[in-house]
Computed example of a mutant assay.
Amino acid sequence: MSQAHPPLSAQATRRLTRDTEPYLSCDDCFDQVDGYVEALLADPDHDLPAMRTHLAGCTACAEEARSLIMLVAEQDGLDPASAGRRLGAE
């Protein structure tokens, strides 16, 4: 007997069909996320297109970046809101 799967949400559909260029692997993202988070906290308009594209489509890496933003912001006495909004902009 086959089990019915719930339909994909609109958000899940967008993530599965989005343009992934410029491409960045999860391994490369992991290697660069610390510097990216520090740069976002210093300048919320900072942009690395490959990182932005990857974080918009990869929930695991995006969650890691959000966690780092909160951790570093608290540690350095910074407001994480604008950097966090930048991650959620895609």
Rank of each mutant, 00 (worst) to 15 (best):
L41V: 03
L40V: 07
C29E: 01
C61E: 05
R52Q: 14
A42Y: 06
E63G: 11
M70W: 08
Y23L: 10
D47P: 00
L24A: 03
D45P: 01
M51P: 03
S67W: 05
A56N: 11
R85I: 05
Q11A: 15
S82W: 08
Q3I: 15
D43Y: 05
L87R: 02
L68C: 06
Q75R: 14
P7E: 11
P7Q: 09
V33N: 01
S2F: 13
A12P: 07
L8F: 14
T59C: 02
A42W: 07
T59F: 10
L8K: 12
A39L: 05
A73I: 03
R85T: 08
G84V: 06
A62F: 05
R15L: 15
T13L: 15
R66F: 10
L78C: 07
D79L: 02
T17R: 09
E63V: 04
A83D: 06
A62K: 09
P7A: 14
P49I: 07
A65M: 03
P49Q: 10
A62P: 00
L24C: 07
R85D: 12
G35N: 09
A65G: 02
R14W: 14
R14E: 11
R15S: 05
I69K: 03
P22W: 09
A73C: 03
A60C: 05
A73N: 04
C29P: 01
T53M: 12
L24T: 00
A81S: 10
A10F: 10
A83G: 04
R66Y: 08
R14P: 01
G88Q: 13
A12Y: 13
Q75A: 12
V33G: 01
S67T: 12
D34E: 04
G57C: 11
T20W: 14
A39Y: 03
G35I: 05
S9D: 10
A83I: 11
L78G: 07
E74K: 13
L71W: 04
Q32F: 02
L16Y: 05
M1A: 12
E64R: 11
H5W: 10
V33A: 00
D31N: 00
H46S: 06
L40R: 08
A81D: 10
C61M: 09
L71N: 02
Y23Q: 03
P44K: 12
S25D: 00
A89L: 11
S2V: 08
E90Q: 15
L48T: 05
R66W: 12
L87S: 02
R15F: 11
P6D: 09
C61Y: 06
D19S: 11
A83Q: 07
C58R: 05
R18A: 15
S2E: 09
Y36G: 00
R15E: 13
L40F: 08
D45K: 13
T17C: 13
V37R: 04
R52T: 12
A65K: 03
D45I: 02
L41C: 04
S25K: 00
A65Q: 03
F30V: 00
D45S: 15
D34H: 02
D27V: 00
G57Y: 08
Y23K: 07
D27E: 00
P7D: 11
L48G: 01
E38R: 06
P80V: 05
P49W: 12
P6T: 14
A62W: 07
C29D: 02
D34N: 04
C61R: 06
T20M: 15
G35M: 03
